[in-house]
């Protein structure tokens, strides 16, 4: 099986290039294992990976033009030659490793923690089953970056538009019955860039390896804004 991999070392290379590698496909082989086989052939090849089971979100890559997690993508489902590139729109550090600091900075802007106003209770803050259910589809994000780096609005304004991942996180805290900063969170998002650069093209939904729906979360934020606006 042939893999065509994006190679670029900013210290030594003038420009990026695609390099072909041959790897023997094995039954049930995931793309991460194929990339590790490439790494055994060429130790200078670099990519991020860790848990190998779609939990850590380290190996988000652009494969045959679509963002996905290498560790849960069976190679037999991919058209060959398999073209592997770094996540789009992020500065390349080396080969398939990109700088995700801007992505994390946008996430941080959503204050991704509960903000209670009342004094903390002696025991846990209780939720009804319905209040807990409201968080389903919002809290499971593993922050792989597949969604935000598939979003053209995030490519054009990565420092101003929060991107689908951060907006999913924002919705997760607005929806949480234990959080008491909803008005403050919605006021922060009521801006020409932070939320409203989303034009609903749903690339984020298309690529999310966890099957989440950031577009729906963004719609939920807009609805809450309308409900809360004077």
């Amino acid at each position: 099986m042939e893999l065509r991999i994006y190679r670029y070392n900013p210290d030594t290379d003038q420009e990026p290039r695609m390099v072909s590698y041959q790897v023997e496909a094995e039954r049930g082989m995931m793309l991460r294992e194929a990339l590790m086989a490439v790494q055994r052939q060429d130790e200078s090849f670099t990519f991020r990976h860790s848990c190998g089971e779609g939990v850590c979100g380290s190996d988000g890559l652009n494969v045959n033009g679509r963002n996905m997690l290498a560790c849960i993508t069976p190679v037999e489902e991919l058209k060959t030659p398999i073209e592997v590139r770094p996540l789009p729109g992020r500065p390349v550090i080396r080969d398939l490793v990109v700088d995700m600091s801007g992505f994390y900075a946008q996430y941080e802007k959503t204050d991704p923690w509960l903000k209670p106003r009342d004094p903390p209770p002696q025991r846990e803050i209780r939720q009804t089953p319905e209040q807990r259910d409201a968080l389903d589809g919002l809290y499971e994000c593993i922050m792989c970056g597949c969604c935000s780096t598939a979003c053209p609005s995030f490519w054009w304004n990565p420092d101003k538009f929060l991107g689908p991942q951060a907006l999913l996180s924002a919705a997760r805290f607005v929806a949480d019955s234990r959080d008491q900063a909803t008005a403050e969170r919605l006021a922060f998002l009521d801006d020409r860039f932070r939320l409203f650069r989303c034009h609903g093209i749903m690339n984020c939904v298309e690529v999310c390896p966890k099957g989440l729906n950031p577009t729906k979360a963004i719609g939920y934020l807009k609805r809450r804004m309308l409900q809360e606006s004077p």
Binding site: L189, D190, D191, R192, F193, R194, L195, F196, K222, M225, L226, S229
Partner: peptide, 10 residues
């Protein structure tokens, strides 16, 4: 209108 996203959207 520059710093308000909801009104133009609506």
């Amino acid at each position: 209108m520059q710093n308000n996203g909801l009104k133009p959207w609506l």
